[in-house]
Computed example of a mutant assay.
Amino acid sequence: MTTAAPHAHGVHFGRRDVQNVAIGVGIIVMLVGILGFVPGVTGSYGDLRFIGPDSHAMFLGVFQVSMLLNIVHLAIGAVGLTMAQRWTGARSFLLWFGVVYILLGVYGFAVGTASAANVLASNMADNWAFAVLGLAMMVCSWLFTRS
Rank of each mutant, 00 (worst) to 15 (best):
S141F: 01
L95A: 13
G43H: 12
V32A: 12
S141Q: 02
H73D: 02
M58W: 09
H12I: 14
S66D: 00
L31Q: 10
M30Q: 14
T145F: 01
M67I: 15
G36E: 08
N20A: 10
T3G: 10
N20G: 05
G43V: 10
N123I: 10
A57H: 00
D17P: 01
F37C: 06
A116Q: 13
H12Y: 10
Q19N: 09
N127P: 08
D54I: 11
H56V: 01
P53F: 06
I76K: 05
L69R: 02
G112W: 04
Y45T: 03
V38G: 00
G46C: 08
F93G: 00
V119T: 14
N70E: 06
G61L: 04
V62G: 02
L95N: 11
G43A: 15
N70V: 03
L143T: 11
G98L: 07
C140Q: 02
P53W: 07
F59S: 00
V11M: 06
S92P: 03
A110H: 09
A8S: 08
V38A: 06
I71L: 15
A117L: 12
G24S: 08
A22S: 08
V79R: 05
P53M: 02
S122V: 15
Y107H: 12
G61T: 01
F13T: 08
G24I: 03
W128Y: 13
G24A: 03
T42M: 01
V18T: 02
A78S: 15
Q64T: 07
G134H: 06
I28W: 12
F50K: 09
G105C: 03
V99R: 11
A57K: 05
M58G: 01
I34D: 02
G77E: 08
G14P: 05
T2F: 13
Y107C: 02
P6R: 04
V41S: 04
F109D: 01
A129F: 11
N123V: 03
S66K: 09
H73A: 00
D54C: 06
R15V: 06
N118H: 07
G40P: 10
S141K: 07
I51E: 04
F97S: 01
G108M: 05
I51N: 04
R146H: 01
A110C: 01
F13V: 10
A136G: 08
S55M: 04
L68Y: 09
L60G: 04
L69P: 00
V111M: 05
